[in-house]
Write a protein that binds this DNA or RNA. Sequence first.
RNA 1: GGAGAGUUGGCCGAGCGGUCGAAGGCGCACGCCUGGAACGCGUGUAUAUCCUAACCGGGUAUCAAGGGUUCGAAUCCCUUACUCUCCGCCA
Length: 433
Amino acid sequence: MLELRKLKGHWKSAARALEKRGMGKEKIEEYFHQLKNLDMRRRRNLQQAEEFRSEIKKISREVGELFKTGKAKEDEGTALANKMREQVLNLKHKLSLKEAKLEKIEDELRECLYNIPNLPHELVPAGDSEEDNFVFKDAAGSLPRLSDSALPHWELAKKYRLFDFELGVKVTGSGFPVYTGKGAALQRAMITWFLSKATEAGYSEVIPPLLVNEDTARGTGQLPDKEGQMYHAEKDNFYLIPTAEVPITNLYRDDIVNESELPVRMVGYTPCFRREAGSYGAHVKGLNRVHQFDKVEIVQLARPENSYEQLDEMLAHVEGLLKALKLPYRILRLCGGDLGFTSALTYDFEVWSAAQERWLEVSSVSNFETYQSNRMMIRTRSKSEKPRLVHTLNGSALALPRVMAAMLELYQDEKGIKVPDVLVPYTGFKRID
RNA sequence: GGAGAGUUGGCCGAGCGGUCGAAGGCGCACGCCUGGAACGCGUGUAUAUCCUAACCGGGUAUCAAGGGUUCGAAUCCCUUACUCUCCGCCA
C-alpha cells in the first residue's frame, strides 16, 4: 500500500501518476478526499484517546501511592481512593467509545489505501491495454519461419512423449500436465540451469514453503486483491503460492536489514499454482496457460536510491538467459493500464512461439518500490539514520512452460528435437527423438 | 493425535499486581587510556505513532497474538499461534 505520509503534500503528482493507469479523475479525487478526511479524523481521535489514557495512568499511580503509604486505610484516604476509582471507571468508559471510533476510522483508512494501486514510475507509458505497451527492445533480426511440416509444441509432446495433459486430468484435472521421460528431464535441466545462472550472478538460493498463511499472502498484495487467483486450503487457512515471490519476499517481513547487506539477492525454484478461473479455448492450449507450473524467481531488496539500477541488473540477467537459449525474444515496458496493481514499473519478456506464430510471456520483472515493503514493514537502517522502507523487486528467471513450448517448436527438425547447447550438460542427452 | 513445560529488547537472562520500556550480562557505537591494539574505564544503545520546524522535548502503545479481571497487568484468568520434552503415527 502507498505511504500516506509520502502522499501528503504530493497529491497532484500522485493524481497524475494514477491517471496513467486509466483511473478516472473523479475517482482519484474521491479517494484522496477520503484519505485526507480520514487522516484528519484519525489524528484528532487518537490524540483524545491518548489524553484519556494518560489521565487514567496518572490517577492509577496516585491510588497506588495511597495504598503504599497506608493512607488508604484511614477513612479520608479510603474515600479519596474510591472517588478516584470512580473517575477512572468513567474515563475508561469514554476511552472505550473513543477507541471504537478510532478503530473504525483506521479500518476505513487501511481499506482506502488498499484500494489504491501503486503510483506508476515516470517511464510508464499511458494507455489502457497491451497495445499501448512500449516495445523497449524488439526481436533481433527477422523471426524464424518453420517448415510446413513443423508441429506446435503440444503435438511434439505427443509424438515424443514429453508431457501428457490427459494423464494430468486423470490424476487432478485440466491444466495439470504430467511431464514424462525426456520431457521431465528437460524440465529439470532447465530448472537446474536457471538456478546455477542465478547463483553465479550472486543470488542465494532458497527453497521456500509452497503453502503460505494469510499474513504472508497479504504481505505481497495477493490478498485482498487477488483472492480468487489462489488455491485455498480452507481447513488450515493456507494458500498455495501463485509465485515464489510470495514466500521469498515475506522471509524479510517485519525485519530491519542492515544497509550494508543491501541489495539482498535471492533466487528460488518452486511450482506455482494459479486457478486461472474461466480461461479456456485455443489461446490456452498446450502449455500456454496451466494451473501448475514451474518457475525460477529472482527477488531483491534494494536501497531506495539505487533500486532502478538493480532493476536493470535483473533485466540483464533475464535477457542473458534468453540469449543463451537462442530464443527470439522481445522486451516490453508495460503501460499504465497493463501494469500490475502493486508495481511501479514492469518489463515483460516474451519469446516467439514459432509454430503458433505469437509471442508468449515468460518473465515479468518489476520494481514495487515501497508498495510491498510498506505492508510488510521491511526496512533498512544505516548507522545513524532512522529505519526506512526498502524497495522490493522481483522477476521470473524464468517461467518454464512457455520457454519449453517455444524451445520445442524452434529446435524441432524432421527427426526430432535438438537440446540447446547450454542445457546439454544438465540433460545428459543432445537430442530428443 | 495425547500429556506436560515454555514464548520478555539484536542475543542471553531477571522480574510473577503498582513508580517496569523493563535489572544484569553479551554484542554494538562513541569517547578515554595506548606508539598501535587487547584489557580496563566512561557514555550511549528498540520500534511505531501523535504534538512540534526538529531523530530537542513531551504524550501514547508495544514483554508471542487477541480477549478478560483490576483503580492499576510483563506479572492473574481465557482463547489462539508457535517452540521444546515424552508417548503415538510416519517419508
